[in-house]
Design a protein around this nucleic acid. Structure first.
Lengths: 121, 121
DNA sequence: CCGGATCCAGCGGGATACTG
DNA sequence: CAGTATCCCGCTGGATCCGG
């Protein structure tokens, strides 16, 4: 996709709505990764998730889950009981994201000391 | 790190300054990935980079490069010529980031159709 | 050529209160 | 229980001008 010499500029159209940047910005927000990791363990109910993540507000948990649901990474199932209970689980697509995500997570953990050392300077 | 049953909430201290989230937010910003990918090809000079990325402003290119430099991912070399020329290149740490990054990029490209389809609904 | 300084619009994200 | 509706604030990122 990108030539080795790059004589021409990367056109805006190519990175303005680039799927890579798109995914990275989604995953780069404050809570998404944490939610995905938790749902990677097992399905969760809404309040269960909120109790599971210290510091997240109802609003942000809702927004995060809606975003993941919109992208087809999370499946939302409403059980019409009283009181209602809603279950969230990763879709196969969501589970497939866990692999490259944990690869980057491993990199982050492995090189954390180098990054910290660089920042100290 | 995370138990399989999660009886206790993920403490805020564990994700407030988590190295994984830290890296993801850095990489999730608007221009960083693009710059890293370009520098993964060969060293670049400042204006050369700016011409190479359509739409980036001087300010944002500077900020992006400073951030990468601070984290030890990019090396900045000033050649004291007139006019001055500054060369940017990836450090070994920066190059090592390319691998997990491209893994996630590959995932994004591969599943782009599924995500687009999910969003359409 | 390579920035720094300043100003400003937009969005991410938190707190709180209310509802089916 | 599982949200929605408001309000508000800080930070990201863009535009512009200035300086070594």
């Amino acid at each position: 996709m990108l030539s080795t010499r790059l004589p021409m500029p990367v056109p805006a159209a190519e990175h303005e709505q680039c799927p890579v940047t798109d995914v990275l910005r989604r995953v780069g927000d404050k809570w998404t990764v944490l939610v995905v990791v938790l749902l990677g363990q097992r399905p969760f109910r809404f309040n269960e998730l909120q109790r599971g993540i210290e510091g997240i507000s109802q609003r942000m948990l809702t927004r995060t889950l809606r975003g993941l649901e919109t992208d087809g990474l999370v499946l939302r199932t409403v059980h019409p009981t009283v009181p209602p209970s809603v279950e969230y689980r990763l879709t196969p697509l969501g589970e497939s994201l866990l692999h490259p995500l944990s690869a980057l997570a491993d990199w982050a953990v492995a090189h954390q000391p180098e990054i910290a050392a660089a920042r100290a300077r």
